[in-house]
Design a protein around this nucleic acid. Structure first.
Length: 568
RNA sequence: UGGGGAAUGGUGUAAUGGUAGCACGGAUGGCUCUGGACCAUCUAGUUGGGGUUCGAGUCCCUAUUCCCCAGCCA
């Protein structure tokens, strides 16, 4: 794996106990599972993983790690019409990137199709399942409503022999799609609609990304999921809240079969402010080109966060801090950003880059001289060492770091004022040079040679320290600035009849060109993470080429000055 | 109006009948060669109404609000 920081230290005892970990602790106390703890993460390969999946992944793999158990990666690939190998590959990559290891336990529901078929035969022989000739519309009509019981299918009481024969012929491919199903015989008047003779198999003459054309009947989620868990010896089958209504069915199938019976436990899925989380909506953002693919750095997908520059350990720390419960909630994206900043602050090498350059000429500095100044790579981590940064007569500072007529709280450069250039010299602004239109195009400054390295021997203080890049050896770069994809905390909050896409933030991507970066990053490769001092955390983009560097802004630093400005 | 769930500061989450705590956010101050980081202080909460108890966020009753379910999706 390319990531060096993807090992997690999530083993030993749990640091916090949510209600699920409490169940595991209690089970270990009573010996319910012979002190085994075995979970699984069971994605359907029909889309890319997102931050909500990361919560589930960290929960399942985290619990296994903390309790000395195991966690399987299992693809729930029971519907070939929606699933693709591309998604399988991306999911495998993403879970690994997050830092988790399933060892040799990579499984596919499709690997169990024959066993599931045999168990279906068992239920038919017991008189607990039957082949139904109703079509989709008819099944719906027979199901009844929330308040009214359903009607029994006219095919409900076929003989075992006839059912066996018909089911075998379903498998052989004698019937067209949708013409017949295998159904569990439970109770058409059950108050839980899931128990009204649910479908176990449907006919689909569709190639499967793993089993090809071996099957033309495919098991439904309700029928297959508990079987998959049972086969793998799962102890705690953790899923999201919407499956709570399905638990009676999960239990019913396993009880009817009399096989090993894991415990299903449901928790609330993650919602985040300023983004959407449903696979359907994310797919639409991609398909309708509102973003540039699944890994667009504005997407809440794991691949998007990776490209944006989020670290696996930062995402894991977020998963830990949000906790787990059964309450529907929406986490403030600021909490995610906090976790990422906290992690990046410790790990990111610092470097200087000027996003919006303003040319500065140091009038009293020798014309062709270049000095290499010592700079600290990471003040949070002495082992990161130091580097040399070139200083020359012509250099660049941030346009925002100069004001001709500054307000009192502006500490940076203005005419007649003195500031420090980080790791270099104190400079004083003598003159702002303007073009015909009155725009400031360059600054003439003088430096104090006695302040070399950044300190004044006479004890003179300066209010601000600016980052800068010398014209000599400077690298040109494109820098992409990102902000929230939506303008509203809740993108679903739309006027009557309008779509969530009307809340898309038109300024979520801003591309800057002609940015200047110090030569230290010349050899940078995609996914390298940096802190550009005073500007934020950045990540080298995969579009980056030698000679044409591209960086994504992961997050800004906390910006006190911006707050002061906002207050007016 | 059937069934299944859930309600603790602005947000997320603890407290397992015994001082309502932590984190984010916000505010204020300190420090600083990043207006970063760090440190300190402050801010603000048990959905409503009854009841049991020496004592209730927790137990009981009741009301209210929100979420999920009528795919041959998962």
């Amino acid at each position: 794996m390319a990531e060096q920081d993807n090992t997690n230290t999530n083993n030993g005892t749990p640091e916090r106990t949510d209600f699920i970990r409490q169940i595991v602790i209690d089970d270990n106390k009573t010996g319910k599972w012979d002190n085994r703890v075995h979970t699984r993460f069971p994605p359907e390969p029909n889309g890319y993983l997102h931050i909500g999946h990361a919560k589930s992944i960290c929960l399942n793999f985290g619990i296994a790690a903390e309790f000395g158990g195991k966690c399987n990666l299992r693809f729930d690939d029971t519907n070939p019409s929606k699933e693709e190998q591309e998604y399988v590959d991306s999911i495998v990559y993403d879970v690994k990137w997050l830092g988790w290891d399933w060892q040799d336990r990579l499984f596919f529901a499709s690997g169990y199709f024959e066993q599931m078929y045999q168990w279906a035969l068992d239920l038919i022989r017991k008189g607990a399942a039957y082949v139904c000739d109703l079509n989709g519309d008819q099944v719906r009509e027979h199901r009844g409503t929330l308040t009214q019981p359903g009607k029994e299918s006219p095919y409900r009481n076929r003989s075992v022999q006839e059912n066996l024969d018909l089911f075998e012929r379903m498998r052989k491919g004698e019937f067209p799609d949708g013409s017949r199903t295998l159904r569990a015989k439970i109770d058409m008047a059950h108050p839980n609609l899931n128990m009204r003779d649910p479908i176990m198999y449907r006919i689909m003459h569709t190639s499967h990304h793993r089993t090809g054309d071996a099957w033309c009947i495919y098991p439904t989620y309700d029928w297959s999921h508990g079987l998959e868990d049972s086969i793998e010896g799962i102890t705690h089958s953790i899923c999201t809240l919407e499956f709570e209504n399905h638990r009676p069915l999960y239990d019913w199938f396993l009880d009817q079969l009399g096989i090993y019976h894991p415990q299903q436990i449901e928790f609330a899925r993650l919602n985040l402010t300023y983004t959407v989380m449903s696979k359907r909506k994310l797919l639409q953002l991609v398909k309708d080109n509102f973003v540039n693919g699944w890994d667009d750095p504005r997407m809440p997908t794991i691949s998007g966060m990776r490209r944006r520059g989020f670290s696996p350990s930062g995402v894991r720390s977020f998963a830990k801090v949000i906790g787990v419960n059964k309450t529907n909630s929406t986490v403030d994206v600021a909490l995610l950003e906090h976790c990422i900043r906290e992690d990046l602050n410790k790990s990111s090498p610092r470097v200087m880059a000027v996003l919006k350059p303003l040319k500065v000429v140091i009038t009293n500095y020798p014309d062709d001289q270049v000095e290499w100044m010592d700079a600290v790579n990471n003040p949070e981590d002495p082992s990161a060492g130091t580097r040399k940064v070139p200083f020359s007569k012509v250099l660049y500072i941030e346009q925002d770091d100069f004001m001709e007529n500054p307000p009192s709280k502006f500490f940076r450069l203005s005419p007649g004022k003195e500031v420090r250039l980080r790791y270099a010299y104190f400079i004083k602004c003598e003159k702002a040079v303007k073009d015909a239109a009155g725009n400031i195009v360059e600054l003439h400054c003088t430096y104090d040679p006695a302040t070399r390295g950044g300190d004044s021997p006479d004890g003179r203080k300066v209010k601000a320290t600016l980052h800068w890049v010398a014209d000599s050896n400077a690298l040109d770069a494109e820098i992409r600035l990102y902000s929230h994809l939506f303008t509203k905390e809740n993108p679903e909050d739309t006027p009557e009849g309008e779509h969530f896409t009307t809340n898309l933030n038109p300024d979520s991507l801003q591309v800057l060109t002609g940015c200047k970066v110090e030569p230290h990053v010349k050899e940078t490769r995609a996914l390298d993470r940096w802190q550009f001092e005073r500007m934020g955390y950045f990540c080298t983009d995969s579009d980056s080429r030698n000679g044409k560097l591209v960086f994504n802004r992961t997050l800004t630093l906390k910006d006190t000055w911006a707050k002061i400005q906002q207050k007016g």
